[in-house]
Deep mutational scan, measured.
Amino acid sequence: FHVTIHVGDITFHIHGVSEEEVKKLEELVRRGADWREIKKTIEEIEK
């Protein structure tokens, strides 16, 4: 999957994300995680 996440003024683009990881990111966004937490999760996914 290709994912784009907008957190305030920050936009993250992630490529090659599995469905499971998409759900993890959706959950973070849904519970209102700040951009640092989302960035950390994205960095883990990209490894």
Score class of each variant (00 low, 15 high):
28 L>P: 00
38 I>P: 00
26 E>P: 00
44 E>N: 07
11 T>R: 03
3 V>D: 02
7 V>Q: 04
2 H>M: 09
34 D>N: 08
7 V>C: 07
28 L>Y: 02
3 V>A: 04
18 S>T: 15
2 H>W: 15
37 E>K: 02
6 H>S: 12
27 E>M: 09
43 E>A: 11
33 A>V: 08
20 E>V: 09
36 R>V: 15
17 V>D: 04
14 I>N: 00
4 T>D: 09
27 E>P: 00
12 F>L: 09
45 I>T: 04
2 H>D: 15
45 I>D: 01
16 G>K: 02
11 T>A: 05
30 R>S: 10
25 L>N: 00
21 E>R: 04
8 G>V: 02
3 V>Y: 06
25 L>Q: 00
46 E>A: 13
18 S>P: 06
2 H>R: 04
8 G>R: 02
37 E>R: 00
32 G>A: 06
18 S>W: 04
26 E>K: 09
31 R>L: 12
46 E>Q: 13
10 I>H: 15
22 V>K: 08
22 V>G: 06
43 E>T: 09
4 T>I: 10
18 S>D: 07
10 I>F: 15
14 I>P: 00
5 I>A: 01
35 W>R: 06
40 K>R: 14
36 R>P: 15
12 F>P: 00
24 K>V: 14
36 R>Q: 15
40 K>M: 11
17 V>E: 03
43 E>I: 13
9 D>E: 11
38 I>C: 02
18 S>A: 07
44 E>P: 02
8 G>L: 04
33 A>H: 03
38 I>Q: 00
28 L>W: 02
34 D>K: 04
39 K>T: 12
10 I>K: 15
40 K>I: 10
31 R>K: 13
41 T>H: 12
20 E>N: 10
17 V>C: 07
13 H>P: 01
19 E>Q: 11
30 R>E: 12
28 L>I: 08
4 T>E: 09
39 K>G: 09
21 E>W: 14
12 F>K: 01
24 K>Q: 14
27 E>L: 07
15 H>F: 14
16 G>W: 11
25 L>A: 00
5 I>H: 00
36 R>L: 15
9 D>F: 09
22 V>M: 12
25 L>I: 11
2 H>V: 14
20 E>D: 11
4 T>K: 03
13 H>A: 02
37 E>T: 08
26 E>V: 10
29 V>N: 02
32 G>E: 06
12 F>Q: 01
22 V>H: 05
40 K>N: 11
29 V>P: 00
18 S>Y: 05
35 W>L: 15
23 K>G: 10
31 R>D: 08
43 E>G: 07
13 H>Y: 06
34 D>W: 01
1 F>N: 14
19 E>W: 15
27 E>Y: 04
23 K>C: 06
16 G>F: 12
47 K>S: 14
43 E>Q: 12
29 V>T: 06
30 R>G: 06
47 K>P: 06
34 D>L: 01
25 L>D: 00
25 L>Y: 01
36 R>E: 15
41 T>M: 14
33 A>F: 01
43 E>C: 09
42 I>K: 01
17 V>N: 04
11 T>S: 07
3 V>I: 11
13 H>L: 03
32 G>Q: 06
29 V>L: 13
46 E>W: 11
39 K>C: 08
13 H>F: 05
45 I>L: 10
32 G>I: 03
32 G>N: 12
21 E>D: 15
31 R>N: 12
29 V>A: 09
30 R>H: 13
8 G>Q: 06
11 T>C: 06
1 F>I: 12
2 H>E: 14
39 K>P: 01
40 K>T: 13
16 G>T: 10
14 I>G: 01
33 A>I: 05
45 I>Q: 04
35 W>C: 09
39 K>I: 12
46 E>G: 11
11 T>D: 05
19 E>T: 07
12 F>T: 02
13 H>K: 02
2 H>L: 13
24 K>A: 11
13 H>M: 02
36 R>G: 15
20 E>S: 11
35 W>V: 14
3 V>E: 02
8 G>W: 01
8 G>K: 03
6 H>Y: 04
15 H>E: 07
20 E>P: 09
5 I>K: 00
38 I>F: 04
7 V>K: 03
1 F>E: 10
39 K>Y: 13
36 R>D: 15
26 E>R: 08
11 T>M: 06
35 W>K: 06
19 E>Y: 15
31 R>F: 07
15 H>R: 06
33 A>L: 03
10 I>R: 15
44 E>F: 08
29 V>I: 12
23 K>E: 09
42 I>E: 00
22 V>D: 01
26 E>Q: 10
47 K>N: 10
34 D>A: 03
1 F>W: 04
28 L>M: 12
38 I>E: 00
29 V>G: 03
13 H>C: 07
45 I>H: 04
2 H>S: 08
28 L>E: 03
14 I>S: 02
29 V>K: 05
28 L>G: 01
33 A>D: 04
29 V>W: 07
20 E>Y: 09
20 E>G: 09
17 V>L: 14
2 H>Q: 09
3 V>T: 06
